[in-house]
Each structure stands twice: as structure tokens, then as C-alpha cells.
């Protein structure tokens, strides 16, 4: 299998705060990794290291050939919903087009083909009718759909979703997983969630992040394994599909 990104002995954090210790993981094409762990355990830090937003204190991040920076964004990124300015004057189409902006370029102009591509993606998510609307007029679920479009419009080699199932309606959730399944036929996906129950059915492997990273090469994970990984998450089995809730943990 083709490796696309590899983290070797990565220790990372903010200033003197070390969040992640000695992380090793290789991401391959066709991987679908669910990243779980308690809040504050380092899930978002891991995402930032992979995105290159934080430089590791020690260790290194290797981007293989297919990930080398070119004219297109190689990593699609769906951030947590909370950070964007909801009343900023920008159209939905422009938000999606920002997914086609070239890395390290000051001048970004978009061809007819690129605009058509953006509309195509909006149509496939069922929100083409919103293309010329102002982003601020959308509902929370519609905003999430637009962000998903922005993340996948460049056909990225790797798609990273940070807690995509917060503030979202059920319809979006099933649409999302359908879209991801199709995407995963050719691309790698990393999905961060504190709720393994909703993602266990779709992912192929699970990474438990709680200061350290334990990589589990299957989507079936037992309570004993979670305990052994020092991952304070509780699983309640419902038939064959594991269902989980977050266990309160004492810090």
C-alpha cells in the first residue's frame, strides 16, 4: 500500500505544554482512520501536526510524493464548526472556491472550469440552490455542508474532518458518510471524534489519542483494549455495532 504521510517519533505541543508524546503513525492511500480520545487528549493537536500548522518539537513528519505541494491543495480540511465568523460578507460559491485556492500564491483567479467544478460539488451535496447566497444566511447544517464542499472540491489526497458530527442534523450525517465512503475508494480519510459509536461503522482503523497514540488496525475495539491504551472511553455493545459514550474521567 502507498504511504502518503508518516509521523515518526513526533512530540508536539504549545510552548512548554507538551500535548503529544512519541507519536508514530503511517497514513496510506485508502485508509479511513477514526481518531478518538478524550477532550484535551491531543486529537486536534495531532490534526494540526499533520496539516503542518504546528512543527513537532522532536521527531518528523514525512510527506510522500503524492502529497508534495503543487498547484492544488493536497489535504482537504473540515475544521470544527465554531471558529469562523458567521456574518462575514462572502458568498457560498466563494467559500467553496477557497478550497481551490493555490497554496503559497498571492493571486488567485478562477477559471470557468473551476467555478463549474465548485457548483458541481455543491450540487452533489444537494445545496446548489444556495450557491449565490450569503454564507451568513445559512443554517448550521447548511454551513457544514458548504465546509465539506470546500474540503473536497480540490480532490485532495487526504481528507481530515475534525468533529464533523457536531451541530449537524441526521440527514447531513447519513449524506456525509455516504460521500465519505465513495471518496474513500481513492483517497485517505482521517476523522476525529470523541464519539466512536457514530464512526466505528465506517472507519477501517482506530487511533486512540490520549497524550500518546495507539493505533488499532481494525474498527472493532473492545473495552479491554481501550483500557490498555489508556483511553477513557466506554463502549456499550449493541449487537454487532459497537456503541459508545464518553466516560467521565478524573484528571
Amino acid at each position: 500500500m502507498d504511504k502518503i504521510i508518516e509521523l515518526q517519533n513526533v512530540t508536539a505541543g504549545y510552548g512548554e505544554d507538551i500535548i503529544l508524546r512519541n507519536v508514530n503513525i503511517a497514513i496510506h492511500r485508502n485508509d479511513f482512520i477514526g481518531v478518538i480520545g478524550p477532550n484535551g487528549g491531543g486529537k486536534t493537536t495531532l490534526v494540526k501536526v499533520i496539516l503542518g500548522l504546528i512543527k513537532p518539537i522532536t521527531g518528523k513528519v514525512i510527506y510522500y510524493d503524492s502529497m508534495k505541494e503543487g498547484k492544488q491543495q493536497k489535504i482537504g480540511y473540515l475544521p470544527q464548526n465554531s471558529d469562523t465568523d458567521k456574518v462575514f460578507p462572502i458568498s457560498v460559491l466563494d467559500v467553496v472556491l477557497s478550497g481551490l485556492a493555490q497554496p503559497n500564491r498571492l493571486i488567485n483567479r478562477f477559471s470557468k472550469a473551476q467555478k463549474a467544478k465548485a457548483r458541481e460539488i455543491l450540487e452533489s451535496t444537494g445545496i446548489l440552490h444556495l450557491a449565490d447566497k450569503n454564507f451568513g444566511e445559512l443554517s448550521g447544517g447548511e454551513m457544514q455542508r458548504v465546509f465539506l464542499c470546500r474540503a473536497i472540491v480540490s480532490d485532495p489526497e487526504l481528507l481530515i474532518l475534525d468533529e464533523p458530527n457536531t451541530f449537524v442534523d441526521n440527514k447531513f450525517e447519513s449524506d456525509l458518510y455516504h460521500t465519505l465512503k465513495k471518496l474513500n475508494e481513492h483517497k485517505a480519510i482521517i476523522m476525529v471524534s470523541h464519539d466512536v459509536g457514530t464512526i466505528a461503522y465506517y472507519v477501517k482503523s482506530i487511533a486512540c489519542v490520549n497524550r500518546e497514540l495507539h493505533y488499532h488496525q481494525s474498527n472493532i475495539i473492545s473495552q479491554e483494549q481501550l483500557d490498555a491504551y489508556n483511553c477513557p472511553i466506554q463502549i456499550i455493545a449493541h449487537g454487532s455495532v459497537p456503541h459508545t459514550i464518553l466516560k467521565e474521567h478524573n484528571e
Binding site: L51, G52, L53, E69, Q73, I75, Y77, P79, D83, T84, D85, F88, I90, D94, V95, S98, G99, A101, P103, N104, R105, N108, F135, R150
Partner: peptide, 15 residues
């Protein structure tokens, strides 16, 4: 426009 709208995303995609 893109950077003003969502700086975090802009950083992530290396604008």
C-alpha cells in the same frame, strides 16, 4: 477575501 473569512483554514491550506 479567503484569509479574512477563515484564517485558520487559510493557514491549513498554506495560503
Amino acid at each position: 477575501l479567503f484569509i479574512a473569512f477563515d484564517e485558520q483554514y487559510a493557514r491549513a491550506v498554506k495560503l
